[in-house]
């Protein structure tokens, strides 16, 4: 009976040894990134100015505080967002005003006859512990025909 109890004790300890979490299996933090509808819009035909914007960007972290979210257009940092005692970053609506001003470009500037310039967009989001996620895409802008519309003056 005594040996049987000892045997059960050894089995239980062995099971515990394998089931208990080891330092290596500690839960690591992660961050997810969503970018919705990157857009390039030419508001006025009279202007070669286009605007790049996104319907929304969201970065949600777990296990660590949200640190920052950066938006690069054509390799240039255009927006820097930080976290303040929170684990997520959101860009919604008109948080970036009308968007990022870029040059529309002439017809076929990016090799596509329907469009002007093409711009790479990179979004990088990170947590305080340096866990990082990035997303990239390319937007094509409407081309600028270079037409100028003169006002009709009547005598």
């Amino acid at each position: 009976m005594h040996r049987f109890r000892l045997f059960l004790l050894v089995i239980a300890l062995t099971v515990l040894l394998f089931l208990s979490p080891s330092p290596g299996s500690a839960q690591t933090s992660s961050i997810s990134l969503q970018i919705q509808n990157p857009v390039c819009v030419q508001v006025s035909l009279n202007s070669g100015t286009c605007f790049i914007r996104m319907r929304s960007i969201s970065a949600v972290g777990s296990g660590s505080s949200f640190s920052r979210l950066r938006v690069f257009v054509n390799g240039k940092l255009r927006a820097n967002m930080i976290g303040f005692f929170e684990n997520s970053g959101y860009v919604v609506g008109n948080m970036f005003g009308d968007g990022f001003v870029v040059s529309c470009g002439g017809k076929n500037a990016s090799g596509n006859p329907d469009y002007g310039n093409a711009y790479p967009i990179v979004v990088i989001a990170s947590l305080a512990d340096q866990t990082t996620v990035s997303g990239s895409t390319t937007v094509y802008c409407p081309y600028f025909e270079g037409k100028s519309f003169l006002p009709l003056l009547l005598r």
């Binding site: 979210l69 938006v71 240039k76 940092l77 255009r78 927006a79 820097n80 967002m81 930080i82 976290g83 303040f84 005692f85 929170e86 970053g89 959101y90 860009v91 919604v92 948080m95 970036f96 005003g97 009308d98 968007g99 990022f100 001003v101």
Partner: peptide, 25 residues
């Protein structure tokens, strides 16, 4: 409780101008 503030940010609308915009969500 503390004042709640979410997502302060600074962006540059136009790269040809030395004008940035600070805001928070």
């Amino acid at each position: 409780g503390f004042i709640t503030t979410s997502n302060p940010y600074c962006y540059q609308p136009d790269v040809t101008r030395n004008e940035c915009v600070i805001n928070f969500r």
